[in-house]
Each structure stands twice: as structure tokens, then as C-alpha cells.
Design a protein around this nucleic acid. Structure first.
Length: 143
DNA sequence: CGATTTTGACCAGCGC
DNA sequence: GCGCTGGTCAAAATCG
């Protein structure tokens, strides 16, 4: 299904690209965005800081099979990106993990996958090195 | 028949 | 206050 040539370029690090990668940068910026969050930390519902993990892979298919079941719940086109961004949700009951997938503008071979939340259940499909790689890369930045 | 995808509309947050 | 962008939901359509 998916290519095994999925190589991680870099985790959610500081993107130095201003134009063309506004989407990716926006994701990272949202995590470090403290101005609005710190301002609203009182009164309303507190926004739980769900860990975000973004990485890029080189694959010909948008949907990377990580062993989990995902249900697509939306698709929006981002600015400066000819390719639309897809929104997926884990179908596991109780597992409110979300995932976003989008391609890089200009480089359709590069797919940016952003995971939001943590899986509380094991993989539904074993024997998958991809998931193993993800688990190994479970990074939770101190935001 | 059920689960999932698809597309449009709606809403919220931020910038100006 | 309005407009823009991004994110989510919902109903219909489609696939298996």
C-alpha cells in the first residue's frame, strides 16, 4: 500500500520557511503560541495541551498506514499550498487522536503528517514497522 | 447494510 | 467591527 521509503526528515522543529510552508509553521506556532492561550487561561474552558507531533515523510500516498484506523472528517485547502489538507480522526472509541495530512507545495512527494493526542490503545494491525518507528519517535516537547 | 468518504456550510480565533 | 484562515460538523454519496 504505502511505500516503505518513508524517511523522517525532521520532527516538529522550527521551520525557517516563511512562504510556502505557512501551514507547517502555523502548526508549530500554535504549540508555542502563548500569547492567546496564556491570556485565556482563566474563566473559560481550559484548553488541554495535547501533544502535537509533526513529521515529514517521503511517500507517494497521502495516507500512511500506521496500524490505526482513521476516519476522514474534513478537508480544507490552505493558503500558499496547491494541495489540500486532510483531517483524520481515530475511529477507536475513547481515542480522540487527530491527524492531519498535507503535502508540501511544490514537492508532492513530501507528505507532512501531524499527530495530535496520544493513542491509549495498541495498534490494530501488528507487524508494522512504521508504527514502531512512530512509537520510538514519541516526542513530547515541553510546551 | 454498514462504515467511510466527500463536499459544503458553519464557527471560532486572530489580524487589521 | 469586519474579513480571513483554519478547523469541525453534518448530510449525502459511495464502496465493500
Amino acid at each position: 500500500m504505502e511505500d516503505r521509503s518513508c524517511q523522517v526528515l525532521f520532527p516538529c522543529s522550527s521551520s525557517s520557511v516563511d512562504h510556502g510552508l505557512s501551514g507547517d509553521q502555523a502548526q508549530c506556532a500554535a504549540e508555542t503560541n502563548t500569547s492567546s492561550e496564556a491570556e485565556r487561561h482563566k474563566g473559560k474552558k481550559k484548553r488541554e495541551r495535547e501533544p502535537r507531533f509533526a513529521f515529514q515523510t517521503r511517500s507517494q500516498v497521502d495516507i500512511l498506514d500506521d496500524g490505526y484506523r482513521w476516519r476522514k472528517y474534513g478537508q480544507k485547502a490552505v493558503k500558499n499550498n496547491p494541495f489540500p489538507r486532510s483531517y483524520y480522526k481515530c475511529t477507536q472509541e475513547g481515542c480522540r487522536v487527530k491527524k492531519q495530512v498535507q503535502r508540501l507545495s511544490g514537492d508532492e512527494q513530501v507528505v507532512v503528517t501531524t499527530y495530535q493526542g496520544v493513542h491509549t490503545h495498541p495498534v490494530d494491525k501488528p507487524s508494522d514497522n512504521f508504527h514502531h518507528m512512530l512509537t520510538q519517535m514519541h516526542i513530547f516537547p515541553p510546551f
